[in-house]
């Protein structure tokens, strides 16, 4: 019975994807990205149980941390994901996140700007594909009923949970994740290392102006090479008993 219902959902989603190709809308989604530093740090494999608990004890509660806002602007044929320009001024600027993730759905290619270990890369190539497992679980995110999907991050080998809605028919989402039968409104890395949750969704029949980079600066690369570099640094840091995320964007 359960198998049947999942199959049924899959068929519906497939119909949705077909429908999406012919009819779409533009819009902007604002996400809030929260990086739960203590959770990430306490999972380092080289720590003793006591050291893990000590990190959670000292740093576990960060109620005042508001996170950072990101936007996903999309049209029928493309989407751009980047940090939202800051409106507020608290008298200190840390510098902006430089990553811009550009997806062209017509050519199915990327033209991303990615920062890695102090260097900028321009990544052109096919949109990365993810092996999603769609589950029969639902929840509400920013007023939309979303469905759960899971995959494994190929660099860190950590589980990723996405909540997507078939009501917004864009094959995109935050942090370059996409390929689901609808836009991803919530994304969780490794349970709760990072939570990215949509807070505001603006849809319109008029396509928004996509915030594409004004100029592309950086070394040309592809995701295979980029991810290999990332994985190398991750593995070396863990082996050297140092948290790799001091240097790496998760």
């Amino acid at each position: 019975m359960k198998h049947f219902s999942i199959k049924f959902v899959h068929i519906l989603l497939f119909i949705n994807v077909l429908y999406m190709q012919s009819h779409s809308q533009g819009g902007t989604i604002t996400y809030n990205k929260k990086y739960n530093w203590a959770n990430v740090a306490s999972k380092m494999p080289y720590l003793s149980v006591e050291e893990k608990d000590r990190i959670l004890l000292t740093w576990g509660s960060n109620k005042d941390y508001k996170g950072t806002d990101f936007i996903l602007a999309f049209t029928k044929s493309a989407s751009v994901y980047k940090q939202k320009e800051k409106e507020e001024n608290f008298g200190y600027s840390w510098g902006e996140d430089e990553d811009v993730l550009v997806r062209n759905f017509d050519t199915r290619t990327t033209k991303d700007v990615r920062e890695l270990l102090g260097k900028l890369y321009i990544i052109e190539g096919d949109i990365p594909k993810f092996k999603w497992k769609i589950l029969n679980e639902l929840k509400d995110v920013a007023g939309y009923v979303c469905m759960k999907a899971e995959t494994i991050d190929t660099v860190y080998n950590k589980p990723i949970t996405a909540w997507f809605t078939d009501k917004i028919k864009v094959l995109s989402g935050p942090e370059g994740f996409g390929g689901l039968p609808g836009v991803i409104l919530e994304l969780n890395y490794n349970n709760d290392d990072i939570n990215i949750i949509a807070t505001k969704i603006e849809l319109s029949d008029v396509d928004p102006v996509l915030p594409l980079p004004k100029k592309y600066k950086g070394k040309k690369s592809d995701y295979q090479e980029f991810n290999a570099k990332k994985k190398k640094h991750y593995t070396l840091s863990i082996e050297g008993r140092r948290n790799p995320f001091w240097d790496l964007r998760y």
Binding site: E50, D53, L56, K139, D140, D192
Partner: peptide
Amino acid sequence: KSTASEEKTMNVELKEEFKKGGF
């Protein structure tokens, strides 16, 4: 919607559980 909110509550409880400890 009720299913969704139940899910949410469960998630929150899991997180609370995770922050428990003692040594």
